[in-house]
Amino acid sequence: MARMKFLCDVSRCIECNGCVTACKNENDVPWGVNRRRVVTINDGVPGERSVSVACMHCSDAPCAAVCPVDCFVRTEDGVVLHDKDLCIGCGYCFYACPFGAPQFPQQGAFGVRGKMDKCTFCAGGPGPDNEDRVKKYGRDRLAEGKLPLCAEMCATKALLAGDGEVIANIYRERVFNRGKGAEVWGWGTAYGPPGAKSEAAPAAQGAKS
């Protein structure tokens, strides 16, 4: 079963913000809302690292756990979506999310918090496929067999999107080619599927850092 995930390779991210721009343009995201953003650690210091962050489509999403109106759904392909018609804009999900993914557009003269907006993994949203849905949630690229534009647009291919196992394999191959394996976290990413024992050997040899 496909389990859609994002993976950002911080060794490759050059903080160009191409992913942010691609997302905003593709989904016509309103002013003041960033479904994706690039965070830089130790900005300006030699060795700084940037990472592109958006909704990570958690397997056990805390936003869904705290939502008082149960407007979140995790689809069969592992994408966490929410129904904007049901959302009351309370902001609990924002406090629960460790990545700061939920965004709230300011509406009205006094900045009243609007309905929550977040990354949909370019899967549109719930409800019938029509113009209204595109306006609310953005494009449904997954139904066209495409991946989120932020990842497809990434110039250095730092941001990977797709089935968790597939992108973990891509990342692992990269790390092996770099000659060190300290960056690979997690059992699946480090060792791959059960049949990939011979492939994992170079990491052990080259793991110096």
Partner: peptide, 9 residues
């Protein structure tokens, strides 16, 4: 889940 049904891609 109280929202609208989601159609798989």
């Amino acid at each position: 889940y109280q929202g609208k049904p989601y159609s798989e891609p």
